[in-house]
């Protein structure tokens, strides 16, 4: 049987065939898939991991974890130190737990700030359109033309290497991205009837934006926020490697401090790096899940 091209096994061709045959629509495959109740196993794993991370961030410093033990220095996994130690004898697991709080706090703070600023900018641009929109978009585009990482580096360097400066730098980088998404979504929604209805009822602009458009835009923003947190965590690591990151122990600084020792003892780097990987993976996956649930039109990526 001619079961090779163009028979796409996800049913899309079959559906088109049948449509042509009987002129009646059938459910597209992804609609069928979405009716599956609850979350999959992977989603639960992701949530589980993130819960662990959150826990580490909150109660980490108070946990009774192995302390510095000089005899362990530069060793890989051994008894009592399941993930090895760094060159001074600090247990890698302890370090990574300790480093969780600054990293996560940074990520959450940055995303919160960027969502507020970018959200407002995007809503305003998408709602009012016209010249406001053009002006805002142009500013956005110019900011995006400059190399983002370099921008952040420069800001931190110039203003001093403190937690809040790093946060500021990352907010400045993240806001245009979130603003863009919000604007795109606002544009779509502001055309819809319920917005027009609200306006004809005499609602003022602010009210329309907050009451009508915002609730519809939030799911998309939320999924992007999840992805953005992942990006900020990665960025924190990157900035640290480049010596413009946080100063307190964080996932990033662990990598930065220990990468010189990579040859002799890779564990102090591999541990935080792997933790970052899992966390980012979890956020990405959940971001995807949220997007699929709420976004009717699936984008290519």
């Amino acid at each position: 049987m001619a079961d090779e091209i163009p028979t796409v096994a996800d049913g899309a061709v079959e559906e088109r065939f049948v449509e042509t045959v009987e002129g009646l629509p059938t459910d597209p495959e992804h609609v069928k898939a979405r009716r599956r109740r609850g979350l999959g196993l992977t989603a639960w794993l992701a949530l589980g991991w993130l819960a662990v991370v959150a826990l580490m961030a909150i109660i980490g410093p108070y946990l009774p974890l192995p302390e510095r033990d000089v005899s362990c220095a530069r060793e890989g996994p051994a008894a009592g130190h399941p993930l090895g130690c760094d060159q001074r004898g600090n247990d890698n697991l302890t370090l990574v737990v300790e480093g969780t709080r600054p990293t996560i706090t940074l990520a959450v703070a940055v995303i919160a700030g960027a969502m507020i600023l970018g959200g407002i900018a995007g809503l305003v641009a998408g709602y009012f359109r016209g010249r406001t929109d053009t002006a805002l978009t142009n500013v956005l585009n110019i900011m995006l033309a400059l190399p983002q990482l370099v921008l952040a580096m420069a800001i931190v360097r110039f203003m001093g290497q403190t937690f809040w400066n790093v946060a500021l730098a990352l907010v400045i980088v993240a806001t245009p991205l979130l603003g863009r998404i919000t604007r795109a979504n606002t544009l779509t929604f502001s055309e819809r009837e319920f917005v027009l209805a609200a306006k004809t009822l005499g609602a003022k602009h602010g009210r329309v934006m907050v009451r009508e458009i915002l609730p519809n835009v939030l799911p998309a923003m939320f999924s992007i926020a999840l992805l953005a947190i992942a990006i900020v965590i990665v960025a924190e690591g990157g900035l640290a490697i480049l010596n413009v990151g946080l100063t307190e122990t964080s996932w990033g600084t662990l990598i930065a401090e220990n990468r010189g020792q990579l040859r002799r003892n890779p564990w102090p780097v591999i541990v935080p790096v792997t933790v970052i990987f899992f966390t980012v993976l979890a956020f990405n996956y959940l971001g995807d899940v949220v997007r699929e649930r709420f976004d009717v039109r699936e984008s290519a990526l």
Binding site: I255, R263, V273, I276, V280
Partner: peptide
């Protein structure tokens, strides 16, 4: 592909260095 998408480039870099270079 999803896994690689999520993988930050320096994370992969460290893995690659540790395994293939060192």
């Amino acid at each position: 592909a999803f896994g690689f998408l999520a993988l930050p480039n320096y994370v992969l870099a460290f893995y690659l260095i540790s395994i293939f270079a060192l």
